[in-house]
Computed example of a mutant assay.
Amino acid sequence: MHGEYKVPGGKLVVVDLAVRDGRLADVRLSGDFFLEPDDALEAIDAALTGLPADADAEDVAGRVRSALPRDAVLLGFTPEAVATTVRRAVGGATGWLDHDWQFVHTAPQSPLTHMALDEVLTREVAAGRRGPTLRVWEWASRAVVLGSFQSVVNEVDREAADRFDVEVVRRISGGGAMFVEPGNTITYSLYAPGSLVEGLSFTESYAFLDDWVLVALGDLGVKAWYQPINDITTEQGKIAGAAQKRLGDGTVLHHVTMSYDIDAAKMVQVLRIGREKLSGKGLASAAKRVDPLRRQTGLPREEVIDSMVATFRRQYGLTDAPLTDAELAAADELVRTKFATPEWVGRIP
């Protein structure tokens, strides 16, 4: 069995092993990490050999830690990373390069259509009718996108939303509300089989699925890191938030909204929570904006997106695969029967 795990912001950890009579055998740890002293590698292999194959990550990490000499130095990985890699190997996890990634980037769509497309494409990947996919969104109009479990009245000032022609929609993933306007954010979704995140905790899977974005931002001169559970941040503050939804078979929807250049004054009038978060940060003036990607890259939004997609393509491969007529029809039907209904939008009033 073979498992790989790229530590977010760190190094690649690889393990090859067998399972005999319910226990780990022939364990061989490798990777591009740094480890001193040199013989600590053999000590880890020996410590893991014979461990029950169903040992949880905490037990595996504890066995690794107990095998390390007092003066051991681990750079780019941790005992927990080794444990994650072992669990991925035993669980039959796949890696990014095991999949033929598809790419969707269409003309602007309505907020309701975007909500529906996320559900449709997740189910298409689960059914095997579409390969794992990266989709970059383009917004046709202003919206507040509520997390699946948020209250409308607690999050949105409906009077301000109506005044600014902001549509209120609800997505299928949890997390917080987002305020979007055409051209002011960068939003993308990943639709992937559960095998890609096999062996990862929910917290680990967030960072794992967005590690490529950190590389892409680094290529643009932006030093960013993942702030658990679901934020991407820099020294100048948060620039993105992620959310996930898992289907019963493990298929994962992972989507991220990044702030390119948001009108903070408008946002704090529409989002109630935004007033609390931003009132103490000098952003109440109409002259202020939340513009980390525009300011930190100095590039047009389209160039930032092109660079991000190029990074993904370089690392994992990417083939253009436009939305099919069947997918668009299914999204239209879901808008009609679910996402545009008062029962869904107001499921938590």
Rank of each mutant, 00 (worst) to 15 (best):
V222S: 01
G194H: 04
A243I: 05
I305C: 03
V125T: 02
R314F: 05
D54P: 09
T113M: 14
R347Y: 04
D56T: 12
S307H: 13
H105G: 13
T203N: 15
T78W: 06
T84M: 06
Y206E: 02
T257Y: 03
D261V: 07
G221P: 03
L112H: 03
M267S: 06
E155K: 05
G31L: 04
L247W: 07
E58Q: 13
D231L: 09
V82C: 05
T251H: 01
D54Y: 12
A207D: 02
V156A: 02
R314W: 05
W225L: 12
S141L: 07
M115N: 03
G3H: 01
G176K: 04
A72Y: 01
P52R: 07
E333N: 07
K281N: 11
K266T: 13
D332N: 13
A46H: 11
D320K: 14
D39G: 08
I186V: 12
E4V: 12
Y5Q: 03
P322W: 07
D263H: 09
K281W: 10
G346I: 08
I229C: 12
K245R: 15
R158G: 06
G298L: 09
R314M: 07
V7S: 04
V252D: 00
D291F: 07
R63T: 09
V144D: 00
Q236R: 14
A107I: 08
L75M: 13
D38T: 12
P132C: 06
A340C: 11
G175Y: 01
E167H: 11
R347L: 10
G3R: 01
R23M: 10
T84V: 14
A107F: 13
G346N: 15
E198C: 15
V335Y: 00
K245C: 10
G22H: 09
P349H: 15
E4Q: 13
G194A: 08
L35I: 12
P132S: 09
L328F: 06
A331P: 02
K281H: 13
P79F: 01
L29P: 00
A160W: 02
P349D: 15
A107D: 15
D210C: 11
S110I: 05
S189K: 01
Y226M: 14
K223W: 10
Q244S: 05
L278C: 09
A55N: 07
Y188Q: 02
Y188E: 02
F179N: 01
T297V: 10
E204A: 14
E276P: 06
Q227E: 15
R65H: 12
F179L: 09
V152S: 04
D100V: 11
Y191V: 03
